[in-house]
Structures are given as structure tokens and as C-alpha cells.
Design a protein around this nucleic acid. Structure first.
Lengths: 229, 229
DNA sequence: CTTTTAACATGATTGAAGTCATTTTTTTAA
DNA sequence: TTAAAAAAATGACTTCAATCATGTTAAAAG
């Protein structure tokens, strides 16, 4: 599954390390990390890991976007998170000893590094500030998910779409949001048809611009007002 | 807010410690814990902590049940978790440096111990197995919340009620489930009227027994089948 | 370049669940 | 014990969003 044909991206020169939990690593630790990690190219729609399998390490995104999702009863995806450059994926399952409860798939062509479980856990045990960073991240995501649950329970689909677009605006930064309508719907938690209709409304209300499948937010304040948190 | 009038429950003789993350503590650590913690009695509906305030330590439930919830836009509660004997509450916020994103309130008369942030973080730093326990707990809750989000997005209210009743069956163990219809509705993520109607259906279908406000599950398999996960 | 497939879009219809109004029951407090 | 307040219950009505059916456009594949 891993394709090592592409060139190795060194941690020393990694442009996105500053945005990651490895930002505070000293030179020695960066060198060590670079020795331990492997580097792989992922095609669009290629899976990183699958719900039910046992985690063997963590993934660090150097380039590209990854969707993290669960599957409901009838196999319908629910996207939990879109992860971008600098983000570490799959470390939650590293501590529980249980198999993955979520799956992760590359949304576009990606460069993704892999750190074996053993090496990662060793970092956690020996590097206090890294460990604290991981724990901070775990806590932050926990409260984000509490808010996600509340939004799902109490907000209309329209409001939730606004919320999701604002989250995606942060993930995609200067880039245009680039997701299929189906993925968007599976993030908002609605039917694809409903999402398409709402997106059209948003366009007519001057909130977003639609360039075939890419989206541009042109009235962020309007979305914030609509989202209501 | 804390009422120390009630008798101090010692960690050495705490009946629920075996069900908690402190189960693996050696005698010395238990003695130390007992020195550090304070012990308080909470009346029904008394708050443990409030969304927006800064955490000063963690709470460990010795007796009673506690609801953990967020508030949506119009102040409507969304219950995230019902915590019972042996559970530690509020440790997520201990690592982030941010104020609480959730609130916690006693659902009945409770005995709850308090461990100051400093002492708790010291335990995390020095006691590896306790730290691993906490990290395991954080990860477990993270995946539980991913499933909660998916249920909210994809299941009907009827299915979600079945899910929630099964969760509550675990929390209340041999006791009868004892929540107001409003709290139940705020856990399931529905209107109180809808919840009442569904509960009546469940009763007529022989799934639960209703004793005024206390609920007994009399057909767990039926609920599991209905819940569908 | 053409064919096939996947993604996107739109209309019509239905139903689950929300809201509002009111009554009954239970609990709490005076 | 009674009065007041809170919780539970029921009915009528409405609406948001799902589903189904079908058409159109865009993207891959041959």
C-alpha cells in the first residue's frame, strides 16, 4: 500500500513542521524523528487506515488533505474531520489498544509520513513538552466534538452548512475548498440533494462562489452570523 | 459552593475506587491522594463547574450521578455524558489551558471529591500507569463522540432513544434510570414532547417499564436491535 | 476524440419530528 | 395539608429535510 517511490521529505526541511506538534522539537529530536519516520505518496482516494484494523503508528501530513470518517449502519459516511498539512492523524487509537473506530482517506494527492507506534510512544514517554502538546490536542478535539454533537442536535442543516464552511475555510486557508458535494453532505450530516440546494441558496445570497466543484467563501461575516456560534 | 460539612470519605476505604482510574494506585499513592483531595456534598441540581470558567482541578464521583452538557444557541442543553460512581470529571480541560467548554451538574444528592489541578498534573507527570490510563480514557471518549456524532447525523430519534437507553442502562447498572423527560430529550437530541411520545411507544412495545419518572429496561435485546449498533 | 461513468442538479412528494396550546399529574414548598 | 410550581402528557398543526425519479454536466477512461 505504501509507495516509497517518491522522494523522501526530510523533517529538517519540512515546511509544515512549524504548524505541527513537532514544532518545538530540538535539532537532535528532529534528526532522530527523520531517521525513524518513513515517507509515502498517496493517490487520491487511497486509504491511510480503516475502521476495525489495528493501528501500527501515526501519520503526519506533509502535503494534501485527508478525510477522517466513520460509517453508519447502512455504510453512509460521516466525516468527523478534514486534516491538512502539519496535522498528525491516528494518534488517538495509539493509547487505547483498540482497533481504529474511524477510517482515513486521502482526498487528493498527498505526501504523508509514518511514525511507528513504538517510536511514537517512546516520544510521548520521554519528551514532556511533546506529550503535553498531544494531551492538549486530545482535549481540544474532545471539546470540539462536544460542540459538533450539539450542533447536530440543535441546528438546522442550513446553519450546520455555514459552520462546516467556516471550519473548511480554516483548513483550506488560501486555497479554494475542494470537496465533492457528497463529502460536503457527509460532513454536514444531510442528503446530497439537500446540500446542493442549500449551496445554491448560499450562492444566490452572495455568501459563496461556486467554481464547478471548488468553493470560495466571499462573505465570511454572513456565514458567521448564519452559523450562530 | 463546596460544602465540607459532610463526613470525609477516605480514599483508602472508598468503595468505588476499584472502578476508577485510581484503581491501580499503590498504598503510598492512595495515602497521598487522600491527603490532597477534599470531599464535598452536592445537592440535587448543584453545579460542579460552568462552561466558560477556568478549571482549578478535577472531580471524582464517590456517590451519585452527574450530567455533563453544553448549551446551544438558545440555551438549550445538550447532554454529552452522564457520569456515575468512580468517574473522574473535568480532566479534559486540565491540559488545554482553556476555560471549560461544558458544564456539569449533580443530578441527585452526590458525594464528590476534588483534586487540585497542581496535584493532578503532578500525578500525570510522575505516575506513568495513571497517565496511560488518562490517555486511554481520552482516546476512548474521542471515539465514542465520533460515534455519537454519526448517530446524531444518521439515526432517527427513535433509534437514538434506544442507543441512549442502552448507555444509561450501563451507567445506572442495577438502579432504575432516573432522569427527567427533559434531560432525556436533551441527551437524545429531540423535543421533550417527542421523547414522551416515543417513551410511551417503547412501553407499549414492551421495551421499557415506566414508574412515574423512573425507567426500567425490560427488553434489552429489543433495544439493541432497534438501536442498530 | 468519443464513450462511459461519476458528479451535479432539479422537481415532486412524503413523512418524521418540531412547535404551540392545553390539560393532567407529580413534586416541592409554604 | 394545601397551594404553587414543575414535570409529564396529549392533541392539532406545520415544516424542514429526506426520498425517489429523472435530467444534465463534467471528468475519466478507452
Amino acid at each position: 500500500m505504501l509507495d516509497k517511490s517518491h522522494k523522501h521529505v526530510s523533517c529538517q526541511h519540512c515546511a509544515v513542521r512549524k504548524d505541527s506538534l513537532f514544532a518545538s522539537f530540538c535539532e537532535d529530536h528532529v534528526n532522530e524523528l527523520n531517521e525513524q519516520k518513513s515517507c509515502a505518496f498517496y493517490k487520491k482516494n487511497q486509504g491511510l487506515f480503516l475502521d476495525g484494523s489495528f493501528p501500527r503508528g501515526v501519520f503526519c501530513i506533509n502535503k494534501g488533505k485527508v478525510k477522517v470518517f466513520t460509517r453508519g449502519e447502512e455504510g453512509k459516511e460521516q466525516i468527523i474531520q478534514i486534516a491538512g498539512e502539519g496535522e498528525i492523524i491516528g494518534f488517538r487509537s495509539m493509547f487505547s489498544g483498540e482497533p481504529y473506530k474511524v477510517s482515513a482517506t486521502a482526498l487528493e494527492e498527498c505526501n504523508i509520513c509514518f511514525i511507528a507506534k513504538e517510536d511514537f510512544l517512546n516520544m510521548i514517554d520521554t519528551n514532556t513538552s511533546f506529550r503535553n502538546g498531544i494531551m492538549r490536542e486530545l482535549s481540544k478535539e474532545l471539546s470540539e466534538r462536544a460542540i459538533f454533537i450539539t450542533n447536530m442536535a440543535q441546528k438546522s442543516v442550513r446553519e450546520r452548512l455555514a459552520c462546516v464552511l467556516l471550519i473548511l475555510d480554516d483548513v483550506y486557508k488560501e486555497e479554494e475548498i475542494n470537496l465533492t458535494r457528497e463529502d460536503l453532505a457527509n460532513y454536514v450530516g444531510t442528503a446530497t440533494e439537500t446540500l446542493i440546494r442549500l449551496l445554491k441558496d448560499f450562492k444566490e445570497e452572495g455568501l459563496v462562489e461556486i467554481h464547478t466543484r471548488k468553493l470560495d467563501i466571499i462573505n465570511k461575516d454572513g456565514l458567521i452570523k448564519l452559523a450562530g456560534n
